[in-house]
């Protein structure tokens, strides 16, 4: 297959100076006279005569200016014929001449004028329309790549639209308001060469009409109207109400609908709309009776025929809800009300007003708000207020004879609205008080063995009758007595000892009734007094003062502190360490074909040793077998570091089958090779055959479909010598491609020496079984390590291994972890004694996902012999990843 154009010429130019553009030659020239002839489009088909050939030399010339837009490619059919007989000596050869594009075409809009419309108030970035321009130049070429741009906007101002440069989509850039600008006119330019300065441009006009939505509320021309009508008459037009609306005139967004809010309960009136003027005509349709109503207050509302736009609808007809009007109300009552009388006493009614109707609110409930003395109770339905108890003008909640409380009206609709009204209760005084001991504060201590008590009549008679003070109780007899010190009979209490007492202060008024106030007296004991404790004595009406001071010791538990102090110390001790997990395998280029770059080993090893980026892909597994140098876990398992490898990466490097079994990302491989194949196919020059890529498998047992992967294989099918330059796998592939019978890969069935190492490890009390010496670890061959250990102390079952030498050259290390349990139980469980034989294989393993820490359990003595092999590996799926002929008990 001839896959390349033979030549190229530029359209619109004289290419003759480049002649000859191509030449063909048949090697039959050497033995016979040959004439060359061409046919096809551009020769003997339209456009005729573009190409001619020198029949003797085979040189092909171009003679005319060509237009790529007419003929992008010429296919010249070349013939070689015997000059004497005219017989063809060669099969006709297709020679293609590609016409190179020149930017000689202007972008053409599909319409000269675009018209579109979009609703006002729409979301930004809403698509308005799409402009399309085409360019006849070569597709997928910069000459035909069009960039769109808004050149101007009318009316000017802030840009209201944005034009997608690539696809010509016109979007809203700002919120449009029809009431501001009802239409826009844009000049749009399309420029090829992606808008570059060397591009060619064309323009079009783009008109955008802004569609009205009902986003304006109608209002009334006046806030009040009045009219008069005689009783017993009807009127077809009492008065007109003008509606004003900013939306588009004569549309439903503009047309008004009038309605009565209140006042027309009798149905005497109606309103019709004059569609021409948008006025409401108020008519009287039912006779009025002057004697029944001399005036009728009508409350009228207006809306539109069309529903309000969702963007504003919530703002229409705001519900004001209930409110107390006036905001406070005053009541009065006498404190002489008895307990019996208050049970039926109604203080008053305080209803909220529906501010939308002006009538008492109906859909509300009432509760008491601030009511410091809990004096009121209100009926939740009708706002009737009653007392809860006897009122007292002398209550400290009463200020200047007025008690203040609040009542709340809460609407029952959602959202609930609450209005607050204030109740001012003026309490009329009555003579109902005994003398009251004032707020005298006396310090009672050792040196002041008396306290003066002053009584005051709260009924406000400063010159009331004398008071009488009596000692009510004392814990010990006669520790206190009362001594009157002046004519006002103000007593003082004289102390005779320690302790507490109670004094009652009685007032003998005109009626010789005795009501009392009492207070407790308390004196500190001697020690407290001597230490200077002060006692404040405060007497008030029925107020007991208890000057006890109770120290409160806040004891703070130091548990937290202890806990914090004993916080986890990472890294202390050792234990099971979590194996870092990654989910995606990496593919290493050396794993595909060819030698492995040496530095990859270090890269990989370092990653592994870091403990943080270990991947679980099969490639890493296999690679890890060959790159144990420096391997160790983050928890201190690095004792394996520094030990040698088997030195046989080839033998343990995986085939692609292993890659699959290990979970290599086959999608990645597919993509990788597909891209490579494309890249090679598009390159101008053929690549040497040994430069192609190969992913190859021998189609062994259970090979997945497509195991012979993609290969970009380029070569001259007439020349087989390139096969000799290929490696065995490439050569096999080449032979497959050529349809040859291939020979099996020689190393598959070679009887490589096989070594089996079995290691068993016990938790405690067991000794490590000596490792089996390997006679010659350097020999090419299989190494299969099967290992079982347990931490549970259960009897160890003998490991079972099954070695199949067919699966070479591999090292398969399987591992079984039986119930890793104790953290400390593994301590020292693995001690590797001196290995007298230099050819040992030491297998260490990783524990997959134990949670806690264990102390370092693996100590490996210095193995001086370089031929030791330390195999460190990771088992991701111990069961499923094994081949069927491997059995693990």
């Amino acid at each position: 297959e001839w896959i390349k154009f033979a030549a190229a010429c530029r359209e619109g130019e004289d290419n003759s100076k480049r002649n000859p553009i191509a030449k063909v030659r048949s090697d039959c020239e050497e033995t016979q006279p040959i004439v060359y002839r061409i046919t096809g489009q551009g020769i003997d088909e339209s456009p005729i005569g573009v190409f001619i050939i020198n029949s003797r030399t085979g040189e092909i010339n171009i003679t005319k200016i060509v237009d790529r837009e007419l003929t992008p490619v010429f296919v010249i059919l070349c013939h070689a014929e015997n000059a004497a007989t005219g017989l063809a000596v060669e099969k006709p050869l297709e020679l293609r001449v590609r016409v190179l594009d020149v930017n000689d075409n202007i972008p053409i809009f599909s319409q000269t004028i675009y018209e579109g419309a979009i609703e006002e108030g729409g979301m930004e970035n809403t698509l308005v329309m799409k402009l399309v321009a085409t360019d006849a130049d070569e597709p997928n070429n910069l000459n035909s790549k069009i960039a769109y741009k808004i050149e101007s906007q009318e009316p000017a101002g802030a840009p209201m639209f944005i034009l997608n440069k690539q696809n010509g989509e016109l979007h809203i850039a700002n919120i449009l308001d029809r009431e501001q600008h009802s239409s826009f006119s844009l000049i749009v330019k399309a420029t090829d060469r992606d808008g570059g300065s060397d591009g060619i441009s064309s323009q079009c006009t783009c008109g955008v009409k802004v569609i009205d939505v009902n986003d304006n509320f109608p209002t009334l021309g006046q806030s009040s109207y009045s009219a008069s009508i005689s009783e017993n008459t009807l009127s077809s037009e009492m008065f007109r109400i003008q509606a004003i609306d900013a939306d588009e005139e004569f549309t439903d967004n503009w047309k008004a609908v009038f309605f009565f809010i209140s006042g027309n309960e009798g149905g005497f009136f109606d309103i019709v709309t004059d569609p021409a003027t948008n006025q409401g005509i108020v008519r009287c349709i039912k006779k009025l009776d002057y004697e029944q109503m001399q005036s009728v207050p009508l409350s009228i509302g207006v809306r539109n025929v069309a529903a309000f736009h969702h963007s504003v609808s919530s703002q229409y007809q705001v519900i004001e809800g209930p409110a107390f009007s006036p905001s406070s109300i005053s009541f009065s009552a006498s404190e002489s009300l008895t307990k019996q009388s208050i049970s039926t006493y109604i203080v008053g009614t305080y209803q909220a007003i529906d501010m939308d109707t002006g009538r008492p609110a109906t859909n509300v409930r009432y509760i008491m708000g601030r009511d410091p003395d809990a004096l009121f109770i209100i009926n939740p339905n009708n706002a009737e207020i009653r007392f809860t108890k006897i009122i007292d003008r002398e209550s400290h909640y009463v200020i200047n004879g007025v008690y203040t409380a609040e009542v709340l009206a809460i609407s029952r609709d959602f959202p609930q609205r609450t209005s607050t009204g204030t109740i001012l209760l003026t309490i009329q005084d009555a003579n109902d008080n005994c003398p009251l001991v004032t707020n005298e504060i006396r310090k009672v201590c050792m040196n002041t063995p008396s306290v003066v008590i002053i009584a005051k009549d709260l009924d406000a008679d400063p010159h009331g009758p004398p008071f009488k003070f009596v000692i009510v109780s004392q814990p010990r007899n006669h520790l206190w007595d009362i001594r009157y010190v002046n004519v006002c009979q103000t007593p003082f209490l004289h102390r005779h000892g320690w302790g507490w007492g109670r004094v009652r202060v009685c007032h003998v008024d005109h009626a010789h009734t005795s009501r009392g106030a009492s207070a407790s007296l308390s004196l500190p004991d001697q020690s407290e007094t001597e230490s200077g404790t002060k006692l404040f004595f405060k007497m008030h009406y029925l107020l007991f003062l208890s000057p006890l001071v109770i120290p409160i010791l806040m004891s703070r538990s130091d548990c937290c502190g202890n806990c914090l102090g004993a916080g986890t110390k990472h890294g202390v001790g050792a234990g099971f360490e979590t194996v870092p997990e990654c989910t995606e395998g990496n593919i290493h280029s050396w794993g595909i074909e060819g030698a492995q770059p040496e530095d990859r080993v270090n890269i990989y090893t370092n990653t592994y040793g870091g403990g943080g980026m270990v991947t679980s892909g099969g490639v890493e597994e296999i690679t890890g077998l060959g790159t144990v140098k420096g391997y160790g876990t983050a928890g201190g398992y690095g004792t394996a570091a520094g030990y040698g490898t088997t030195g046989r990466k080839e033998s343990i490097g995986g085939t692609i089958k292993e890659y699959r079994e290990g979970g290599v990302n086959m999608a990645f491989l597919d993509s990788y090779f597909s891209e490579k194949a494309f890249a090679y196919a598009d390159e101008d020059e053929g690549r040497p055959a040994n430069d192609c890529l190969l992913i190859y498998d021998h189609e062994g047992l259970d090979s997945p479909v497509g195991s012979i992967g993609c290969c970009s294989f380029i070569g001259d099918d007439l020349d087989d010598t390139y096969l000799d330059t290929l490696g065995p796998k490439f050569k096999t592939l080449a032979e497959i491609c050529l349809g040859r019978e291939i020979e099996p890969i020689p190393d598959v069935n070679l009887p490589w020496p096989t070594t089996v190492v079995t290691e068993n490890t016990y938790t405690t009390g067991s000794t490590l079984q000596p490792a089996m010496p390997i006679p010659d670890p350097v020999l090419q061959g299989n190494v299969i390590v099967t290992e079982t250990y347990t931490t549970s102390g259960s009897p160890l079952k003998p490991p079972t291994r099954n070695v199949d030498p067919l699966y070479s050259p591999n090292v398969v290390v399987t591992e079984r972890v039986v119930a890793p349990a104790s953290v400390t139980g593994l301590h020292g469980m693995l001690e590797i004694p001196d290995l007298p034989d230099g050819s040992n294989v030491v297998v260490t393993e990783r524990v997959i996902a134990p949670s806690s820490r264990i102390p370092p359990s693996l100590s490996i003595p210095d193995l001086a012999d370089a031929s030791n092999v330390v195999v460190t590996e990771r088992v991701i799926r111990p069961a499923s990843g094994l081949q069927s002929n491997f059995g693990i008990p």
Partner: peptide
């Protein structure tokens, strides 16, 4: 057949190039 075409570099210098059949 041995086809050759002339290719032009950026400097306008023509160069004959022989094409082989290529197989993918």
């Amino acid at each position: 057949f041995l086809p050759q075409v002339k290719e032009w570099d950026e400097n306008g210098v023509g160069r004959w190039k022989t094409f082989k059949r290529q197989k993918r």
